[in-house]
């Protein structure tokens, strides 16, 4: 009797999860339908799995280009964020003087500033710098990466700082006595120990930067610089919505996320948990 009860609970649980995800399923099945089929019955299975809407959507969104831009911006930003914020956090955590405390507190306090509060002055400054000095901050992927580093510095330093405080200092001291420079101590001894928190920092930043819309929409003007969220936005803005095409486009944007999730699932859930709790 109890066994049957458990089985029905298992089934109910999965059914609930399936209903929860049903919007994604609906987008997926309708991405194969023609207009007639689509408006006939939204929930029905498609008669044939034709990929024609996918190729059309890929063309209109310039999907491949947007995908590569997103990958480039995300990967380079995250690499810089990991390198620079781990180094900074280590110095701040280990030096223990008042300057470090002030810097650290300032970083934390700025986490309360919403993006909307600084977006206009930031854009004024960035376009001003580009116009007067010629440094290509505005309307370039490198400029966007530069800004990403600035915006995600605080959270990343914060996470590294907490982790570094929890590991013993003895190893570092031993390496220092052996004559290694600070640089050597950090990269050979400390950084490898930081791997778990590095995974968390990477995951959190990948999700935030990959999905970011507002900052790229303000800094990237050229069509061929668009990241995925931008290309989706303009795709929905430019045409009166042809839903079957739109759904093929949406499915395309979800696929990389799902693949990333399947590969890194364990780290993602762990990383999100840690990132939130700290």
């Amino acid at each position: 009797m109890k066994a049957i009860g458990n089985w029905s609970k298992e089934i109910l649980l999965i059914l609930m999860a399936l209903v929860f995800l049903s919007p994604i399923y609906i987008i997926f099945i309708n991405s194969f339908k023609n207009r007639l089929e689509l408006y006939d019955n939204t929930l029905a299975f498609p008669e044939e799995f034709s990929l024609q809407y996918y190729s059309a959507a890929m063309q209109r969104m310039d999907f491949l280009n947007a995908f590569l831009n997103s990958i480039y911006v995300t990967v380079v930003s995250v690499v810089f964020i990991v390198i620079l914020s781990s180094m900074t956090a280590w110095m701040l955590a280990r030096s223990g003087n008042w300057v470090s405390t002030v810097i650290f507190m300032t970083l934390i306090a700025t986490m309360l500033i919403p993006f909307q509060t600084i977006m206009m002055p930031l854009m004024q400054m960035v376009t001003g710098i580009t116009r007067t000095t010629g440094i290509p901050l505005y309307n370039t992927l490198s400029g966007l990466i530069f800004m990403n580093i600035g915006f995600h510095a605080a959270l990343s330093v914060f996470l590294y700082h907490g982790f570094i405080k929890s590991i013993p200092i003895s190893l570092e001291e031993a390496a220092t006595i052996d004559g290694a420079t600070k640089f050597g101590v950090f990269w050979r001894v400390v950084f490898p120990i930081l791997t778990p928190i590095t995974a968390t920092v990477m995951i959190l930043n990948v999700i935030l930067i990959w999905n970011d819309f507002l900052l790229p929409s303000l800094t990237l003007i050229d069509k061929d610089l668009r990241t995925i969220p931008l290309s989706v936005f303009y795709f929905f803005g430019e045409f009166t919505i042809e839903w079957n095409l739109a759904m093929a486009g949406l499915t395309l944007t979800i696929i990389p996320v799902v693949i990333f999730y399947i590969i890194a699932q364990k780290y993602i859930i762990k990383g999100i948990g840690e990132g939130a709790v700290k």
Partner: peptide, 9 residues
């Protein structure tokens, strides 16, 4: 899963 798909999409 939904959290990973950005708000815009």
């Amino acid at each position: 899963m939904p959290y990973l798909i950005g708000g815009l999409i």
